[in-house]
């Protein structure tokens, strides 16, 4: 693997459209469930161990070379909220566009042809990592990190939270990010032998419910 390629892919400035999504933080801030650095940290921790783990395992499996169509169906089944399925496909489409320009490969072209409306973002992320010469654990790290960095930066904008505090939250989550990524990569390895059922399906009912409510808001700062 190339450490520099990993930095390019994980950089918040990589033009994949992630900045428009709060990962549920906008709804949680409005409801008062996130109101300071401590509640942001608990939110991020909960998201990391549910949606983050599930996304990281899908990304690792795609990076391993498992069939993207099978993984996309597995992602659909793990995303009961239509608002979140729409967001995941939109993010997947935007990431694929950036990835094909950055690391052009036949595999990414084939994915674009197979999913004209966009595949789930973690599946695209895994194939992008593969195109960049990165491995399954790298892909899992990027997905896990995105599951918490999105809400953290969004909360800085939503609450005017001190950016130093938001970075502190992410730094404190680092050991858990490492362990979730490692678990995701192990699950992806099992899925290669046992099929996609071996991938985790960790979910948070409240994130799903709040995402549906958020999608109905007439005015919002973030797309999800």
């Amino acid at each position: 693997m190339s450490l520099a390629a990993l930095l390019v892919l994980a950089d918040g400035r990589f033009p994949a459209g992630g900045h428009a999504h709060s990962g549920g933080a906008e709804a949680a801030c409005k409801a008062g469930r996130i109101h300071d650095a401590a509640t942001l940290e608990e939110f991020c921790r909960g998201r990391l161990h549910t949606a983050g783990l599930t996304a990281a395992a899908l990304a690792a499996a795609a990076a391993l070379g498992l069939d993207p169509a099978v993984l996309d169906a597995a992602a659909d089944a793990r995303t009961p909220s239509p608002a979140l399925r729409t967001a995941a496909r939109r993010l997947g489409r935007q990431l694929l566009r950036a990835a094909r320009a950055t690391w052009p490969t036949a595999e990414l072209d084939a994915l674009a042809a197979a999913f004209p409306r966009g595949a789930h973002q973690p599946v695209v992320l895994g194939l992008t990592a593969r195109a960049a010469g990165l491995g399954p654990l790298d892909a899992a790290h990027v997905a896990a990190y995105e599951s918490v960095s999105g809400p953290a930066t969004a909360t800085v904008r939503l609450l005017g939270l001190d950016p130093f505090q938001a970075s502190g939250v992410l730094a404190r989550l680092a050991p858990e990010l490492d362990s979730v990524s490692a678990r995701a990569a192990r699950a992806a390895d099992r899925a290669r032998r046992e099929g996609p059922d071996a991938l985790p399906a960790a979910s948070s009912p409240l994130l799903d419910i709040a995402a549906q409510a958020h999608a109905d808001w007439p005015v919002r700062l973030f797309a999800s």
């Binding site: 996130i34 939110f43 990391l48 783990l53 659909d76 009961p80 996609p196 985790p200 409240l206």
Partner: peptide, 22 residues
């Protein structure tokens, strides 16, 4: 696959299970 969902809660569950994203 139509639906696949895992839930873990209570003492010993992964962190954040009872928090603002749990």
């Amino acid at each position: 696959p139509l639906l696949d969902q895992e839930l873990a809660c209570g003492p010993g569950a992964p962190g954040g299970w009872d928090g603002p994203a749990g």
